[in-house]
């Protein structure tokens, strides 16, 4: 109780301070993923560039666990003075709340800006009897329950992305959840699971060397780096698009002047040559959606995934 009162007092004090000089002290960015992962690496790269843009130092705080919900929940207690930000990917906000009770919803934050996006991909071994996305889905449909696919974790965005496609085609496969794309890749390369399901960048070198045949990406359009993979539009499943995307959010009640300052800084940083070059290396593209439009995007994705989770029996 005492801490609550102190917190409330601090809150009042914090908001009365003038925002004109923002930022005048270091900013802390919570990353709800372990150090070294995709979200962490892109947040750190972003932070180094933002430091120059905002003229202050930025510390990254990794708070991993619970598919990202641990870090986001922790961030709910952050002060809305503009010095605490959240750099997350979409899953903890739009997917995890479908499966677990969370202390937050997509509208619990002030949307600042999305930064980049990429698709998930499904890949098979070279000997797999399919050469195109269409043949791949036909093979899966013809053999219900025969193939195993590795994914990033049960009820994760990656699994939902795949299940949306499978459901649309009445396909039955066995989902084997792993700790992350790296672990999935290891088990795929070792032949322990038939299908790799995960983000593009870890599997990219194997697709290029021919050790993996990537046949589907979960974006509507095809991805240039994976020429053999069909986009969902080409398969007539354009409305089943599920992306992996990253964003920066601020605590509810953050001053609009600060948010605007951050939006401007993020727009410059994300579109800078250094950042786009970095993104290209990890198979992502810059994508800046800001303010209320970002809020709508979050809510829209949340509602679409709620439908899939419901039909999979995963919803809480």
């Amino acid at each position: 109780m005492k801490t609550l009162m102190l917190g409330a007092a601090a809150l009042v004090l914090g908001t009365t301070v003038a925002q004109a000089d923002y930022p005048e002290r270091p900013i802390e960015i919570t990353v709800p993923a372990p150090a070294g992962g995709g979200t962490d690496t892109s947040a750190r790269m972003l932070a180094t560039l933002l430091e120059g843009e905002l003229g202050t130092s930025i510390a990254i705080l990794n708070a991993a666990g619970g598919g990202g919900s641990v870090g986001v929940t922790q961030f709910m207690q952050a002060r809305n003075d503009g010095y605490s930000l959240l750099a997350t990917w979409n899953s903890p906000i739009t997917t995890v709340p479908q499966m677990q009770p969370t202390a937050y919803a997509p509208d619990s934050f002030v949307p600042v800006a999305s930064t980049s996006q990429t698709a998930y991909t499904l890949c098979v071994a070279p000997a797999f009897p399919a050469e195109t996305g269409e043949e791949f889905l036909a093979e899966l449909a013809a053999n219900p329950g025969r193939y195993t696919y590795g994914n990033d974790g049960i009820g994760g965005t990656m699994q939902l992305a795949a299940e949306r496609i499978f459901q649309a085609r009445g396909i039955e496969t066995i989902a084997v959840p792993f700790g992350g794309a790296g672990e999935t890749l290891q088990n795929f390369l070792g032949g322990h699971v038939d299908i790799y399901g995960g983000s593009i960048s870890p599997v990219l070198p194997y697709a290029q060397s021919g050790e993996a045949k990537c046949l589907i990406v979960t974006s509507a359009a095809a991805v240039p780096a994976l020429p053999q993979a069909s986009g969902l539009e080409a398969l007539g499943l354009g409305d089943k698009e599920t992306l992996l995307w990253r964003m920066v959010l601020a605590p509810a009640g953050t001053d609009q002047a600060i948010v605007d300052r951050l939006i401007a800084a993020l727009e410059t940083t994300v579109n800078s040559p250094q950042y786009t070059e970095f993104l290209a290396g990890v198979g992502e593209v810059p994508n800046v959606v800001t303010g209320p439009a970002l809020g709508e995007r979050l809510q829209g994705e949340f509602d679409a995934l709620a439908e899939v989770a419901q039909s999979l029996g995963l919803a809480q």
Partner: peptide, 12 residues
């Protein structure tokens, strides 16, 4: 290391 530590009521 610049780790954030609890500041208590001083931060106000």
């Amino acid at each position: 290391l610049a780790k954030p530590l609890p500041t208590g009521f001083w931060s106000g």
